[in-house]
Design a binder for these strands. Sequence first.
DNA 1: TCGCAACAACTGACCAATCAAATACTGCCG
DNA 2: CGGCAGTATTTGATTGGTCAGTTGTTGCGA
Lengths: 150, 150
Amino acid sequence: MPAVTDDHLITTFGRLAEAYSRLEQRLGPAMEAHTGLPHAWFEVLIRLARSPEGQLTMGALAEEIALTTGGVTRLVDRMQKAGYVERRRCPDDRRVSYTGITDSGREILDRTTPEHARNLREVFASFSERDLAALDELLDRIRHTAHAAT
Amino acid sequence: MPAVTDDHLITTFGRLAEAYSRLEQRLGPAMEAHTGLPHAWFEVLIRLARSPEGQLTMGALAEEIALTTGGVTRLVDRMQKAGYVERRRCPDDRRVSYTGITDSGREILDRTTPEHARNLREVFASFSERDLAALDELLDRIRHTAHAAT
DNA sequence: TCGCAACAACTGACCAATCAAATACTGCCG
DNA sequence: CGGCAGTATTTGATTGGTCAGTTGTTGCGA
């Protein structure tokens, strides 16, 4: 007679939360100790670096890192003060503001990435290529089905 | 010539973060709308309900839900004020304080769980039993390897 | 072309977490 | 036995986020 609290998916969700925050707890401090870059900032920089022109609108950035636009405004403020990003105006639409990565941003990103990748490889050492591919695929499906919000 | 920013695991980590926060964004508000229970409270209650005597020490609870003990103290304060949990003293060690689920806590948990499970099933509708088993196994491995902190 | 609804970014008020230090207690070692 | 290092929890100060509402801009429909 399983209690209602035994639903398997609830546990799966709990596992997802735990896997994520343990990873964050393990890798975040390491990154910050290494180059002084908070992990959240790294996530912003890598997304900017991967975008055309090295820039993204505030809204798009908010979408990518799963923050509200208000949160992104403040995050970008701080990173701008540190010199890693700059705001660029959009010539076509004066409402939108781009956040672009600066040279200094690319520089610290390049300096941080190898160590971060090394740490990740250490955590995922026991995972085969097949495991990783399966994980990517499953996470991607969650990402998409969960995103189709009302 | 892949840039250093192309490391695959970095993307996987990003996917994990995104999958988690999208799920949270999708399910959290739904739960709160349904019974007024914030998702974080639900996570506390379900863990207490699953523990022997329906209780856990502050430290153990912090460990389970990946918060600092300071954070847990305040979270439990709020939940206690709402009547869902109570503090119980430990007879053997006066430093430790148990958080125990109350009848009111069990009641709202039971009232919240079916809807939450239903929503989860909706998100995971396209996942086969095999998919879910694989996901569980992979997440569990991350959870464990990431946990072995220095 | 004017008016207005929709939209992007930003801001003030607030909230919940963190960090570090304090408090309270335990149990071991000399 | 007495002191002290270690442990569990709480607390004060701070940070980084959300929410709701504002500002400035766009583009569409009458």
